[in-house]
Every structure is written in C-alpha cells, then in structure tokens.
C-alpha cells in the first residue's frame, strides 16, 4: 500500500533482481472459523486502520454487509447456515486476500511494481503504479481484488503490511475478541492450527483441518475449518484453487505477441502523426477542462 521497510521478493512486470541479504521470517494469519462469532469487529478495525469507509447500504435479507468486497471493503464476513450431522451450523468465513505464495495477481499484472510480494509472504498492491487494467482480478483464484470507480486502481487487503513492518499484528487480528484471528510466523500458525484441529476432532468434527491450498503454493492467510473436506460449504471457498490458464498464456506465449501489438500501436500513432499532424483539442473540450479546474 505504501512505502515500507520490508524486503521485496518479487515485483510485477519487473526483472530487476530482488534483495538477498537479510533473513526474514515467513508470516501468516490464521482464521479459526470454528471460533468466529461473526461480530464484524475485524471489518470495523480494517476500515479504521486503513481509512476506508464503504457506502451505508441496505439489508438484503442476510447478516452479510457490505454484501461483497470492494475498493473500500477489504474484508467481509460471509454467513452460511448449513445442516451437518443433523445439527445446524452457522458457518462464518472472513473473506479477503489469501496472500498466495504463488500470487496469480502479481503474475498477471503488466504494470511494473504495481504488485509486490515481500519476502515475509505479504502480497501488496502499490496503487501509485497501478494502471487499472484489472488483470489482477482475472489472475486471482479467489476473486478478491476490486477496481475503484473513483481512481480506477485495484485495492485489496494489504495484511496491514505497514503494521507488520513495525512488528504489529494486522488490525483485524488485534480487534478480534475471541482469538479467531491469530497472527505470527507461518510455522507457529501451522502448529497452532494443528492444536485446534486436534481439539475439533475430539469434539466430533472428524474432518476438521487446515486450509493452506498447495495449488497456489500455500497461502499466508489460512483457515481452520471444521469441515476441511468441504471448503465449498464456507460461501464457496474453492477446494483446489489455481491460477487461471489465461494468466500463464499471457505470461508465456501471448506476452511477446502483446509486446508486438503494442509496438504496432506505437508505429501506427507515428504514422498518424506524420500523415495527419498532432491531435487538436477542440475549443469545447478546453472550456470544459478550465471549468473543472476552476472547481
């Protein structure tokens, strides 16, 4: 999101080698769905820390609100009522960026330095470099990034990279009243999850488990699920997420073609300039711009 002191592992559309000297710890946020009460304190904390305020919407007949992720809602609770083993369960999943080890958004991004992966695992958007093309949306296997209507830039959870850089837990983890959001090294989080899974199994959730999908190289936001065999129960959490083949196509075969196409456009423009002269701005448009400036 902003200037930071974290080491960078990779940057979108950049071939400059990354730093190698410092040793950093891989971090993770663990969301224990079985301990979540759906209070939305994490949503509130996210809005407050990141200075984002979504619209005051309407009730759509469910507890979810705002209804979906947006440029101003980087995390939302998704509530599902299911009957499992003849018992009603209210599954509440905190949705947001998973911070994939192999981030589809970064891979798809054509704007140099708009998407960053830090050596600690956080995938961050640097909006000042974002061109608003929306390729990250296509590239994301979890349908997370959203393009702002105000500035045409992509936004999503930064895992509070600014807080993490100064040894603070993300705002959501800090605000959670039940300890359902834990934060620490990925290793510690896996250990913690293992204890939770054992506990859940003892309580009759035979299929309890950790969600850390390997199709994207594992994630730096993980879930403890009571029904790890059916992630789809949790508002459509994908069972085997992977990066869209379109992204590989773009990065592989299509990229040189696209470069060629861009070169073609440039050549065309030159031809246009030579034959027709510079584009002229009409008087009306100039007046319009002046009026805007006067505001």
């Amino acid at each position: 999101m902003a200037l930071q002191s974290l080491d960078i592992k990779q940057r979108s559309a950049t071939t400059t080698p990354s730093t190698q000297v410092r040793q950093t710890v891989e971090i993770a946020k663990l969301i224990d769905v079985s301990a979540c009460i759906g209070c939305k304190a994490c949503q509130v904390a996210c809005s407050e820390w990141n200075d984002i305020r979504d619209e005051v919407g309407n009730c759509h007949g469910v507890y979810d609100n705002p209804m979906d992720l947006s440029a101003k809602s980087w995390t939302v609770m998704r509530y599902t009522e299911v009957e499992q083993n003849n018992k009603l369960e209210w599954l509440i999943r905190k949705d947001g960026c998973m911070h994939c080890a192999d981030p589809g958004c970064l891979k798809a991004c054509p704007a140099p330095g708009a998407i960053i992966q830090y050596s600690n695992g956080i995938v961050d958007f640097h909006q000042e470099n974002c061109i608003g093309c929306g390729y990250c949306v296509t590239g994301c296997p979890f349908n997370v990034p959203r393009i702002s209507k105000e500035d045409s830039k992509a936004y999503k959870c930064s895992l509070c990279s600014d807080r993490v850089a100064v040894n603070q837990a993300p705002a959501c983890a800090k605000a959670c009243p039940t300890g359902a959001i834990q934060f620490g090294s990925k290793e510690d989080m896996k250990d913690y999850a293992a204890k939770r899974v054992t506990d859940l199994k003892e309580r009759g959730y035979d299929q309890a488990g950790l969600y850390d999908p390997q199709g994207v190289g594992g994630t730096h936001v993980m879930y403890v699920l009571h029904h790890a065999d059916k992630p789809d129960l949790y508002a459509g959490l994908p069972a085997n997420p992977s990066i869209s083949p379109l992204v590989s196509l773009w990065k592989g075969v299509a990229k040189p073609l696209a470069t060629l196409a861009l070169a073609g456009v440039a050549l065309g423009s030159l031809f246009h300039y030579v034959t027709k002269g510079p584009n002229e701005v009409s008087k009306e448009i100039e007046d319009e711009i002046e009026k805007e400036d006067a505001k």
Partner: peptide
Amino acid sequence: LTEHFHYWTKQSKINAIMQPEQF
C-alpha cells in the same frame, strides 16, 4: 446485534455500514 450498541451506534458511520438497515 454485535454490530451495534443500543441506539448510539446508529449515529456512527462505520457501525451503520456494518448493519445499515432495520430487519
């Protein structure tokens, strides 16, 4: 609701965003 406190927080923008309308 967990999103609100009595009749106070309906006056606060963030709480209003979280649970905006009577149901």
